[in-house]
Amino acid sequence: MELLPADQDTESAEAVSSQRISKIPTALNRKQSKLIVHFDLNNTLQLFDTVTRQGPRSALSSFLTTVTWGQINQEGKWEWMSLEPSLNPPCDGAVSYYSQFGKLLDFTDTADGSLFKKIFTDHLQQMEWTDPHNDLLSVTGEDGKEYHRILPAFFELIDCLLSQNREFAIVFRTFGADLSRALKTTEVTLSGQHPQYQHLQMKHLPLTMVPGKIRCNKKDVVLTLGSERISIKSDPKALYHYFSSLEGIVGFQDHFDWWARNSFSSHGGKPFWIDPSETGIQHIFIDDNIRLNDAESIICAQMFVDGGSETRIVPTAELEDVCLVRTDLLKAIHDRNYFIKCVEQCEENYNNYTALL
């Protein structure tokens, strides 16, 4: 599928107005698979973290510690291996600043982090809310300035999918307690109250305002939403079928305590199912805490084998940019087409992946 013009590259995206990008074309995907896109909130769709109580400045600063790379040299001093932030190490032996020193909320104000100050300042500025104050659409930062509550790139994805008449669902998946506010922000935007997305009020998209919960134990995973209660105990595919049947936007709070009890590994992470035998649907999970090292990752990815109810745990590396996307927060801020490109890449890679199974 081609959601973007073939000749629209990164340089053209950089030249786009901070208010609106050029209109997304309406060429339809030939395959027309239904998309279920699971989204984390903190540091994926929001430049703040309610769990750790980080505002926009702190959240961006701490994120930079996870994408900047160096090592301790023979003199026992920190030495940068690259001055270009990246999700993965630029070379053998490089470790993230975070893994060495932890997430510093004032990283770019330190001697080590000062080299990334311009990147920090430029991206923070791109997130500034320049329209009249709105508690649902903007958030006040530590510096007193207003910032977008939800990244514009998210609404660009919704706009694109609606314009292309795609069948899809968006599922918020967070450990935090910010679901209600995120759903309300989305509701306000879809009602035409967002100054930059007033045209979205002309497009109907179902929105479930009541947040649900997902709870896990050794024998079961249970989803509740209002009066609904769905368990995989008697039907291993029950939650997969539930998510696959969704339309529009809905949100669930995942089970943080279960993740913590499993040493913050993928084994206790947010449950996520895929079924390659079902060719008319694709599930994608986008989260900033996805890691190639499953001992540190946040998604418990499970694949149904041969279309049956038996599952196998899938290593994160096997599904990277196929069904699992680690959020590059800098790109998501800088390029309003970022999530569109993520979905486009996953669709292409998923077709290739399933063809080899």
Rank of each mutant, 00 (worst) to 15 (best):
E2M: 15
L4I: 14
P5T: 01
D7I: 07
S12C: 04
S12Y: 08
A13D: 10
E14G: 05
S18W: 10
S18R: 09
R20Q: 10
L28T: 03
R30C: 01
K31P: 00
D40L: 10
F48M: 12
T50P: 01
R53S: 13
G55K: 15
L60I: 13
V67I: 13
T68Q: 14
G70R: 08
Q71W: 05
I72A: 09
W78V: 07
E84P: 00
E84L: 13
S86T: 12
L87D: 14
L87I: 11
G93D: 04
Y97M: 09
D106S: 15
F107G: 08
T108F: 06
G113R: 07
G113N: 11
L115D: 12
K118W: 04
D122Q: 14
D122R: 10
Q125S: 13
T130Q: 09
P132Q: 06
H133G: 00
G141A: 07
G141Y: 12
E142K: 10
G144N: 09
K145V: 01
E156V: 12
E156A: 04
I158M: 11
D159A: 14
C160S: 14
L162C: 11
E167P: 00
F168M: 02
A169D: 01
I170A: 05
V171L: 06
F172C: 01
R173N: 10
A177W: 06
D178S: 08
A182T: 06
L183A: 04
T185V: 01
G192L: 03
Y197P: 02
K203P: 00
T208S: 11
M209Y: 01
P211A: 10
N217L: 09
L223W: 09
S227R: 13
R229K: 15
I230G: 11
F243S: 07
L246M: 13
G248K: 13
Q253D: 02
D257F: 03
S265H: 05
E278S: 08
I281S: 01
D288K: 00
N289E: 11
R291S: 10
R291M: 03
A295K: 12
A295F: 05
A301P: 04
M303T: 02
M303I: 05
F304C: 05
G307N: 08
I313S: 14
T316M: 11
V322K: 04
V325R: 05
T327H: 00
L329V: 04
A332D: 05
H334C: 10
N349F: 03
Y350I: 04
N351D: 03
N352K: 13
L356P: 00
